[in-house]
Simulated assay, not measured.
Amino acid sequence: MQALENLTLAFFLAATIVQLAYWLGVFSRLALYRQPPPAQQPQEPISVIVCARNEAENLQKNLPSLLAQDYPDFEVIVVNDASTDKTLSVLLDFQRKNPKLRVVNLTTKINRGKKAALSKGIEAANFDLLFLTDADCRPASDQWLSFMQPFVKGRVKVGLGYSPYLRATGVLNAFIRFETVYSAIQYFSFAFAGLPYMGVGRNLAYRKSLFVQHGGFATHTEVTSGDDDLFVNEVADSRNTRVVLSPDTFVFSTPKSSWRGYYRQKTRHLSTGARYKLKHKLLLGLISGSHFGHYMSGIALAFFFELEMIVIINYLARMGVVSLMYYWILRKLRDPWLLPWVPLFDALYILYYLLFTPALFKTKEPWT
């Protein structure tokens, strides 16, 4: 019994140390990051690409904000991915009123997900610099293109933007926003550390020439998701990738309103993680394992070995660091309302791991 206690204690202390190392050594890069102002330079033409399948209502709400960007030379390409609602008629109506809008109409759904539709949109793009977003997304301001474009220049071929979810009432909304922030903490911080491993297609920029050079989505066409994170995981490196975090470049999206819808969405997205590069999987696995191990071994020490004081001291040490980092990061990401939720959701994340880890090993994905 003593050996088991010592082993559990050693695991708890090791997990806590690993967590503190990540928060202080890696995630602090985001907390302390200061976004420089965009450089004054000639503005390069941009192709904004949106894939839409049965998105008539969202396009009515959000397409005007894309077309109204304060930028001298850009086009908005919307790919109608074999919609069965009024998506096409909505797009044609917008197109008659705004010459910046171009419509690519696909009459047959080629495959699951949006990779085929996105590839068609990229093929139709007139310009090399591509900005990607979704039909249910809306830029925070008309400066999205103007503020983000200057950072994707020269050797920088990939621009990682932030796409938060809109704030609403309820625990589900708060948790979705928390999970979005926590994911952003990881992939932005690793990008700052020279290890970019993913981006989010709701707010992502890259070069058409880069897409063509790497054969598009050829290495993972059979995977429903991954048009954003798997592509970035394949092509991004420490030299060609830049994070852009000006609040004017944020692109907001409406989150799922039901737990079932959220579960299906996350299962589909997380299933791409098994295809990340090995170094990324190991680093991310260490984050998840140490986070899970900190809580589970701490619970075991407190309930079975009566080492509550050691657990409390280590918990408070870690939570103090985590809360401080979240304080700075949430201010930077313009969602300070989440701060009171941090201790609860940080602990409940062990249930998230238990629920979604099997998605990493699924071979079939839901078609939504």
Rank of each mutant, 00 (worst) to 15 (best):
V235N: 00
V76C: 11
N233Y: 02
G159Q: 01
A193P: 01
F12T: 03
F361E: 00
F127N: 06
F178S: 01
S83Q: 07
G298R: 01
N173V: 12
D73G: 13
N314H: 12
A274V: 13
N80F: 07
V104I: 15
G273L: 08
Q265L: 12
A82M: 08
I185M: 12
T8L: 11
R34M: 04
H269R: 13
I329P: 03
S323Y: 15
P255L: 06
G159T: 00
F147Y: 04
K97E: 14
F231N: 02
G159W: 01
A174W: 14
G273A: 14
R96Q: 13
A52N: 07
F190T: 00
R34W: 12
A31W: 06
F211C: 05
L339I: 11
L360I: 04
A68Q: 13
P196N: 11
N105D: 15
Y197L: 08
F188L: 13
L88N: 02
K61Y: 10
L63G: 01
W259V: 04
T107Q: 13
P336W: 02
T357E: 14
K61E: 15
Q265K: 10
L20W: 09
G273Q: 15
L330Q: 00
K364D: 03
M148P: 05
L130R: 00
L301T: 07
G194P: 07
L24T: 15
P42F: 03
